[in-house]
Simulated scan of single mutants.
Amino acid sequence: MPQLGWHQVRPAPIVLVSGTETFLAERAIRQLRDFLKLEDPSLEISDVQADSYAPGELLTLASPSLFGEPRLIRVSNVEKCSDTFLAEALDYLENPAEDTYVVLRHGGGVRGKKLLDTIRSGLGGAIEIVCAELKKDTEKYEFASNEFKAAGKRVTVSALRQLVAAFSDDLAELSAACQQLIADATSEVTETTVDRYYGGRVETNAFKVADWAIAGRNGEALITLRHALSSGADPVPIVAAFAMKIRTMAKVFGARGGSAQLGAQFGLAPWQVERAQKDLRGWNDEGLARCILVLAETDAAVKGAGRDPVFALERLIGVIARRGEQ
């Protein structure tokens, strides 16, 4: 059976998305969904949890609908699948439904090995999308380079190296940094551009400052902020990191549904939804609203409306660490 990289995902009756790199797996699944949706806007999308599978669920979802719309069935947690799911999935491979695309996400391990071996034998017209962890800096460099290439944005070699150095421990944050530079930079992204946003922060970055504050760790957030500033970080991208996280939290707050469903609803990746849900523990709507107001004030302050951008940042961190409480 064909084994393809995450960026080579294409429609097939059965798409096995394997590997430990969750960010790449979620992006591949999202790209497949977007492609199918573009081909036919009437696409029906369903989500199945293989570890809490209900008997007959797969066959029911794959059954032809009244109007014959194509169907995309996304199955998560296949590495934890129940015996019932395993048996029914093996049966389904013998006779996949027409106009139906079943995506099986397997994050690694030996559970479900019989299913994986059967899929890899080529039964059911399957393909495998391999999403292995990017461990080498050269792999991360290539990933970042492709982010800019796909957006048609020029970037220098030194800028790419600096980005990879600053975000080598988190592929999702590396991608977010690339996307922010793609969106904000009006011309070629150079080392100077990266310096202005993420300068000198191999160990300290804006997202870590935001993470500490959102977790309620005011002291750690302030220490990390001072480290970032002393390393040459600019207050503007630090506020942008806070804005990105708080904005995502506001979208997810009070919403019900699975991460894939909410991600599709709000234009987010499932991992972003799950992270926001985790960050929202202990928050209420009034506190979140106050943080959004202070965030807007801080954004204006660091862009010239205030006399002391560092004081504005420290105030913002205090408000967020208290979850917006007075």
Rank of each mutant, 00 (worst) to 15 (best):
G109V: 03
G122P: 09
F67R: 08
L116H: 01
K80M: 14
I73T: 11
V103N: 07
A62S: 15
A62W: 04
P55I: 02
T118F: 02
A183Q: 11
S175V: 03
T190A: 10
D169F: 04
S187E: 15
V110T: 04
S187L: 12
R120T: 01
S145C: 01
D184L: 10
A172K: 04
S76N: 11
Y92L: 14
E94M: 07
D99C: 06
E94N: 10
C81H: 07
D51G: 01
V130R: 09
C131R: 00
R111I: 09
V164Q: 08
A144F: 09
A159M: 04
T84Y: 14
P55W: 00
E94I: 10
S145A: 05
T190H: 06
E79P: 00
A50H: 02
G109A: 06
I127N: 12
I182Y: 04
S175F: 05
D169S: 11
L116D: 03
V48A: 02
N146V: 02
R71V: 11
A165V: 10
V75K: 09
I73K: 09
Q49M: 02
G109P: 01
R154H: 03
F148Q: 13
S65W: 05
T186K: 14
L90M: 09
H106C: 11
E139K: 07
T60W: 05
L58V: 07
K80G: 06
A50F: 01
V102A: 08
Y101S: 07
